[in-house]
Design a protein around this nucleic acid. Structure first.
Lengths: 204, 204
DNA sequence: TAGAAAACTATCCATTCGGATAGGTTTCCT
DNA sequence: AGGAAACCTATCCGAATGGATAGTTTTCTA
């Protein structure tokens, strides 16, 4: 089984090559960046699977994957990355990638995944794909103060100013002030719009 | 590799058994419902993989899967179904299922999936898992009249009653009446809640 | 330590909302 | 033809909301 591994991280690349070679059954080649990987693909026989690191030189995001897929018919190309978001992975799979292999995968599972993909199937870690997309520090959230976030949270629960004031142990006028500030920051005309915008942004 | 297939559909069960046996390498057993499958599991040696049909007698939804998983340590149990929703599949995987195999899967892929799962990995068809969950004609929509839907649509755009009235060529009091009716039907306390509920339900 | 930013309280006022009540059309089904 | 349901208009009133303005306290940082 002929495998090509392209990753600019020497340690990881060498470890992977050694591990696969140790299984027998594998003929591994490696490249340090996308251009040299493409040279190998064009120069050599067909690979059963090509693993591309998402963050290596020349990749330019999913563009490198797209170009590699187009390079030459039917070769199986998978993504390899430590930090890819689910969105990226889904896009890659839609583009026709053979799969996605996180660098954190146990060696044994990585071996199984590689075999599986070389077999023509599509692979991605289930738990990774089903995990709820977290929205860590949404751009909007940065613009809001702590208090404003609390008020906004109450708003997205459909509460009135009075209720929010009671819950946060504030007076109603104060809540109204925060509301006004929120409308400005969220570019909303009224509380309903503000609530919808907050939900849309994935806050709460 | 010892595989147990439990499905009340004779044709599918026999086809699968024949196909797997034809690969050599497999020792297949089969059961027509959950109770007889459980008897086999308890009486015989360890299986490398157990395939359970979701809709067979004795399953009672995911309950049968749960009980089979608990039956005996470490046996790999996967779900087999033609109509499972993504929600069900995700629950099954969280319960510790080895995977989910749709009955529509091409024979070759099914073989790969079975091997993959027997190897200790978790499998589910990528395209099935990433597909957007469709919300076909939400129950809420049935309870609302045409006019109410139009008003609700305006509401979910954060418009004021006056704006909605203008857009629909109505008077404001009329819009307010529809609002009141909407709150009752949607079980909302105010316009913001109504808007959020409508969005939540996937309307508009 | 001075200044900025965040957070809070307060008052005034016009607008909007939400609820109740009382009707009037139109449309559709029996 | 009669009745129900949907749809519309209207008025009244109290409560909630949105905007403006003014000022205090706290907290963080340059």
């Amino acid at each position: 089984m002929r495998i090509l591994i392209a990753d600019d991280h020497d340690l990881l690349r060498d470890t992977l090559v050694l591990f696969l070679e140790a299984q027998g059954d594998f003929e591994t080649h490696s490249a340090i960046d996308l251009p040299s990987a493409q040279k190998l693909i064009e120069a050599q026989d067909r690979f059963d699977l090509i693993l591309l690191d998402l963050n290596m030189p020349g990749m330019n995001g999913l563009d490198g994957l797209k170009r590699t897929l187009a390079l030459n018919g039917g070769q199986r190309v998978a993504l390899l990355s430590g930090e890819a978001t689910r969105e990226i992975v889904e896009q890659a799979l839609e583009l026709g990638a053979a799969g996605f292999v996180p660098k954190t995968l146990p060696a044994k599972s990585m071996l199984n995944a590689v075999k599986f993909m070389a077999m023509g199937e599509q692979y991605a870690p289930i738990d990774f794909m089903t995990a709820v997309e977290e929205t860590p520090s949404h751009p909007l959230a940065d613009k809001l103060t702590q208090r404003e976030m609390q008020v906004l949270k109450g708003l997205t629960q459909g509460k009135s100013n009075k209720e929010i004031a009671r819950d946060l142990d504030l007076t109603e006028p104060t809540v109204k002030l925060h509301m006004k500030t929120l409308y400005r920051k969220l570019d909303a005309a009224n509380r309903t719009q503000a609530a919808l915008i907050a939900r849309e942004a994935g806050l709460f």
